[in-house]
Design a protein around this nucleic acid. Structure first.
Lengths: 367, 367
DNA sequence: TTGTAGGCGTTATCAC
DNA sequence: GTGATAACGCCTACAA
């Protein structure tokens, strides 16, 4: 009785007017199949772009079009044992970079079936791995993206492989296999920036470090040292102070450098928040910028444009990295016909953004 | 044959050692049911907190615990026709507020089964409604949250009701039924701020508007006018200029006000980005802040602390609003045993954050 | 209060 | 290349 219930109903309507089997309910592949005169499985094959006869495909696609059929994501998720979701794991922080990255991911998946889920986790927590595993186990996402400093942990990558979850690790250096990495050339671009600084006559260059344990901090410091060496300048450890990527730590670092007996003429901070802090420390001391002190940052945060003077900085192409990470993660869903995942780059170039905060060294002060 | 296949297998193992029916597969409620000696439906009832005998519940919960069973979200989603997801619709912008709000939502759902999906949409697009409808139709979320300016459109709310999707509209004034609204008291707090400004001796108060069509902009302007009226001050339309909530529009607005023949001694900008722009315009003109000009903003963005001088502003409790919105949206999942959705507030108080940018009016300049 | 049968919309298996 | 039938893991309706 049940088996026969639908068929008659359908024959009355669907062959003429596209109507769902039940009033109020959405269309299913069964409707499409009947309308196109094929089996459910054939419709499924079209949805999943499996190889088939062109004519059949065209027929089904026409049916989908005229019926306005939209596949049910939940049902596919159940059958696939995968959710149509990308998870972005971020270390719980107020980082504007995480948001920029997120925007990049969203732009890449905007027209796809995919959704982005954001999951903040605490890298200090002893339950970090368990938290991530639970979330992945629940959501069964198509892929996961890890931002620094989470991305720097190899054990997270290994866990994903064990759980059979695709992932991409994002950072300031290659952290995993090419297909699982997106990174920026922090070291090289910092070297280039410092070269510019030296070319402007500066000899005493202060450096504010990022937090220890962050790969980005190490890379940027390495680039700094490399540039000094290349320029034949000594590395003065007294001009290198610690920071934690926070505005407040930038204020402290700036204070330490500026109150020293022989302060630098320019300070490079390993990110913009700290550069803004250094700027504040300079203002507090009545310095005129960039006349008395030049400041250079890294990130190209919104704040870089909004402080006075506006900050010469490195544009960290984090949004592009987000889009790239998404495309590497699910190439079959996000890449067009002609594109090939193997052609996707893994490294994205940072660029120097000249603004107001970097000036020439004063005559008397250089050297 | 098929029906019997599982049972014998299970009886051998599950009663002694908790093992999934198939090697490598996850446990299902069937496993839990057999282990606890009840039916699948009973386990389902426990998962959904339906009323049942305490002893049975305890037995099943013990089984879930010892087996480490985690329900399959996709299967539940398919059966419920609802995904365990909250969607946050944001107008595509670089707003730091959207991210703060997001953090609030995430904190509220952190320990639940729910995930947060973020969906940027373009409020200018003619397809706005269709875009949202498509996304809701695909994801079938447990609820949707709309941030300004999307939240100000009644048609979006009506569409959600038609689609049977719960929603919350967030804004600077009540926009919908209490149970579907979360808002802040923008008007009142601006009135209070302006009262403070007047108390400091200022009489010529500049005002930078938000974009027309934004409810928040109207509310903040209304609060401003109200305060002037209450103080017995005239409203000088020449001191009120337009802005778009952007840094650049703040620079232009600041320039317009400061280059006028008789400039104000203090400028209130309707958000912090514009206040930062006004600050820049003042710096460019060589003004000393707050001696020559006081500036007050609204939002308490990160930039408010990082510019020089730091910005006296209104703390817009957007993260709290995010957490509140989530809890109102799915109270049965996010509220504790003793809590009641009816007790949740709808309005969140903004507070004034005194920093450096607001000073007393100079003797000669006041009036 | 608990259990049984059937369905949610899709994909996988394995014939044809 | 295409189709019938059985999963996928849970919930709803209804029966006991």
């Amino acid at each position: 009785m049940d088996e026969k219930r639908k068929a008659p109903k359908l024959r009355d309507t669907a062959t003429v007017v596209p109507l769902p089997r039940k009033p109020g309910a959405a269309l299913t592949i069964t409707d499409v199949a009947e309308f196109a005169g094929v089996s459910k499985k054939t419709v499924s094959r079209v949805l999943n772009r499996e190889p088939m006869k062109a004519a059949t495909r065209a027929k089904v696609e026409a049916a989908i079009e005229t019926l306005g059929f939209v596949p049910n994501v939940q049902a596919r998720a159940l059958a696939f044992r995968k959710n149509f979701v990308i998870v972005l794991f971020i270390h719980d922080s107020t980082s504007p970079m995480a948001m920029k990255f997120q925007r990049g991911v969203l732009s890449a998946i905007a027209d796809s079936e995919l959704a982005l889920a954001v999951r903040p986790v605490d890298r200090e927590s002893p339950d970090l791995l368990a938290d991530i595993e639970t979330f992945l186990g629940r959501q069964k996402p198509m892929g996961a993206i890890f931002l620094p400093p989470l991305s720097e942990r190899d054990d997270i990558g290994e866990m994903c492989q064990r759980l059979n979850v695709r992932y991409v690790r994002v950072g300031s250096a290659p952290l995993d296999m090419m297909s699982r990495s997106v990174w920026s050339n922090d070291r090289d671009v910092v070297t280039a920036v410092v070269r510019d600084i030296v070319a402007r006559g500066h000899r005493r260059i202060g450096f504010v470090r990022g937090p220890s344990g962050f790969r980005s901090a190490r890379e940027r410091e390495a680039g700094f040292r490399q540039a000094l060496q290349a320029a034949g300048l000594p590395v003065d450890e007294a001009l290198m102070v610690d920071g934690h990527y926070s505005f407040e730590s930038g204020v402290s670092a700036g204070a330490a450098l500026l109150d020293a007996p022989h302060p630098p003429t320019v300070i490079f901070a390993s990110n913009d928040s700290m550069a803004a802090g250094v700027t504040r420390a300079a203002h507090q001391r009545g310095l005129s910028l960039p006349r008395d002190l030049s400041i250079v940052g890294f990130d190209d945060n919104p704040v870089a444009q909004q402080i006075w003077p506006s900050l010469t900085t490195v544009h960290w192409p984090i949004a592009e990295m987000g889009a790239l990470a998404a495309r590497k993660l699910v190439p079959d869903m996000l890449l067009g016909a002609g594109e090939d995942a193997a052609d996707l780059p893994s490294m994205v170039e940072s660029t120097i953004i000249p603004r107001e905060s970097l000036g020439d060294a004063k005559q008397g002060k250089s050297e």
